[in-house]
Nucleic acid binder design. Structure first.
Lengths: 238, 238
DNA sequence: CCGAAAGGTCCGCTGAAAAGACCTTTTGGT
DNA sequence: ACCAAAAGGTCTTTTCAGCGGACCTTTCGG
């Protein structure tokens, strides 16, 4: 009777502090390229209000990111806080025990992506799909891995946007952030990227036609690609 | 350039307190029937350790649930904290602004369920599917709505278990809790339940055969059923 | 009838966060 | 050339959640 179910119920309760969550939010946004190099953040007072935290807490977070080299702050009128021109690479430090959680993150990714895909097949509008197309073109047109990755992230977030669900956009952003930490650590031969982008293109086509079932299955295989590449770099499963 | 993306990045940072999360965890588990009426909770000192919180915080949470009638506490040796024989119904108070968030919760549900289904199609073992079957039988065999709902919840969580993903089990539990708040508020004619359970049965069959694409699409329609019923009870969308 | 096992009470400490006043630097506009 | 506005930088005060632990009270099993 007891057992499995209770494990979930009585699992430790986590409570990240506002400070931690803010660092994470902004850090992820920068590493994903959602806040591109050189971008200016809103003034501290305004940003604090938007994030619903006090300025002091926000500043602690900003300070952390300045010290880690992700942000630059300049004073005076016309100054502000900017994303560094060359944000530091994803720290390998985070990869310490990644193997442990990696597999779970990937499961979550499957969920969020599949859900977004399903709903996008129902709700996507012309403009959503056109946007996805242009991202596919962008990926096809570059041979720089960082550029590719940024566009890739925007593509997947774009699917959530096409699903017209703010909640899924938020979840997708979060998941991409965590998956990105993994992906950035491993080499990606151009051939893999080409194949991957071909799948992107087919996904958009399937969405256009509203073929939800096929889209979800192709998506699954798309993600499996990542998983297989990662498999070689993670601790053996058993 | 800015706009949509920034909305997500600069959205308010939420930080639920440990106390709040604990009340939610236990409250949901009770309302879902994962902790059935009469069940005994572990001693406070032990439970606090398991949840990774101090005993004082845990006690505040327990006190809340005792006052709300979900739990009963008896002192002395052989005493303990128990789930009330007849936990109070889901408060309609929570339904205040449910309309607002309801739609987003349902999107999240689609994601978690679809992901679990996809992975279950790959990973489910005989025993997982057999367990699902017996839950379907259980639902077929009762005409009491509360019994049905409890089994239904366990069915959907069972899919996540069949996916062999602890993360998805946790997410599914959470999502079911929130969806349950909605479902409990609306009438469910027996006819609807029968139809719904027929879908459950077909889902298990599709899982057995590994037909991921079909399973996901049927699942989508299954959830749509809930959505349509809810639609009549929620504030108009536009 | 005692001691163990449970819940119930209390208190003091720490650290996160909020709120706000104020300082310093820089520059755009007049 | 100025100066006011707009930014980041600094400080102080207050509040509150949560921790940790000592201790009390009730009840029952052996």
């Amino acid at each position: 009777m007891s057992g499995r179910a209770h494990d979930a119920i009585f699992e430790p309760v986590r409570s990240p502090t506002a400070f931690e969550e803010t660092v994470e939010r902004l850090g992820v946004a920068i590493q994903l390229g959602l806040l591109p190099p050189g971008a200016q953040l809103p003034p501290e007072r305004e940003l604090a209000a938007r994030l619903g935290i006090s300025r002091s807490t926000l500043r602690r977070a900003l300070l952390t990111l300045v010290q880690s080299g992700h942000l630059l702050a300049t004073r005076g009128r016309g100054g502000g806080t900017f994303v560094a021109p060359e944000p530091p690479p994803v720290s390998a430090g985070g990869a310490r025990d990644l193997g442990a959680r990696a597999l779970e993150v990937l499961d979550e990714r499957v969920a969020v992506e599949a859900g977004a895909m399903l709903l996008a097949a129902e709700r996507a509008e012309r403009s959503d799909l056109d946007r996805l197309d242009s991202l596919v073109d962008e990926m096809a047109g570059t041979s720089d891995f960082d550029d590719y990755r940024r566009a890739d992230v925007r593509f997947h977030i774009g699917i959530a946007e096409a699903a017209h669900s703010a909640r899924l956009v938020a979840l997708m952003t979060e998941v991409q952030g965590r998956v990105g930490e993994l992906i950035a650590l491993i080499p990606h031969p151009e051939e893999v990227l080409t194949r991957s982008n071909a799948q992107h293109r087919r996904l958009v086509t399937l969405l256009r036609r509203g073929h939800a079932g096929h889209a979800v299955q192709l998506l699954r295989r798309h993600i499996e690609g990542t998983e297989h590449i990662l498999a070689g770099f993670l601790p053996a499963k058993e």
